[in-house]
């Protein structure tokens, strides 16, 4: 299995993602956004950063990068397409994931570990987890406030497309545990088939004990676990 990790101008988490995948034995390779092919790859990760300076809207310019046609094709083929932080914003702008990310409720950049409760375990970011698991990984964003209209929210909740909610350490979803005002505490979502998945916090920054948490490995490990899940169907 080989996973592509895309670099847009302004991406800054690509090496962390490659390192995290390496720790779980997944071969990963950096791919520049001007490439037009993802042939030979079994999945793709859009990492965090500030693609194209986040001008206009976060992810708005990146979604038209040359590589994106191949990312859309990979999404359509059912292979894992994962977006982390800025990568999540790009996937929403591209219409591959529902909703959008806007400025945090308190208009402050948030950089701190947060607790997430796993809500669904059939996606490329949660196939290796159990519903109800609580993971603690860092959030690092200004525009992490998830919004969608009520109809969309109801639809994705009913379909099991909500992957993570901000919670307290015991997994209880409360207003106090919501760091950025995200609708219904949503921290990550997937498409209907679960192969396209995105979240705001950074699993690749929680992959070694020295970083304070290794919970991110469970999420990155869900990429290979998703293959097992889909293969078993």
């Amino acid at each position: 299995m080989k996973i592509a990790v895309v670099i847009f101008p302004g991406t800054n988490c690509e090496h962390d993602v490659v390192h995290g995948l390496d720790l779980i034995g997944v071969d990963a390779e950096l791919v520049f956004h001007k490439q037009t092919s993802l042939d030979g790859f079994d999945g793709v990760v859009l990492p965090g950063g500030f693609a194209h300076g986040d001008y206009l809207r976060t992810g708005a310019i990146a979604r038209f990068s040359p590589i994106m046609d191949s990312v859309v094709a990979m999404a359509d083929s059912g292979k894992p397409v994962v977006g982390i932080c800025n990568g999540f914003q790009v996937l929403c702008e591209a219409g591959l994931l529902p909703g959008a990310l806007v400025a945090n409720r308190d208009l402050s950049f948030i950089c701190k570990p947060v607790n997430l409760r796993v809500e669904s375990n059939t996606s490329a970011l949660t196939a290796g987890a159990n519903v109800g698991d609580v993971v603690r990984i860092p959030l690092n964003s200004y525009e992490g406030n998830y919004v969608a209209d009520d109809e969309t929210l109801g639809h994705i909740e009913a379909n099991g497309q909500v992957l993570f909610r901000y919670s307290d350490g015991s997994g209880t979803v409360t207003d106090d545990a919501n760091p950025n005002g995200s609708a219904r505490n949503i921290a990550g979502v997937s498409n209907e088939s679960g192969n396209v998945a995105g979240l705001m916090p950074h699993p690749e920054r929680a992959v070694e004990q020295i970083l304070g948490s290794m919970d991110g490995l469970l999420l990155l490990g869900s990429i290979p676990a998703f293959f097992d899940l889909v293969g078993a169907k």
Binding site: R105, L107, D149
Partner: peptide, 14 residues
């Protein structure tokens, strides 16, 4: 403009 009914943190704060 942000669609009505969706979160507008800058508007709320101001």
């Amino acid at each position: 403009r942000r669609k009505e009914g969706l979160s507008d943190p800058e508007g709320v704060t101001t």
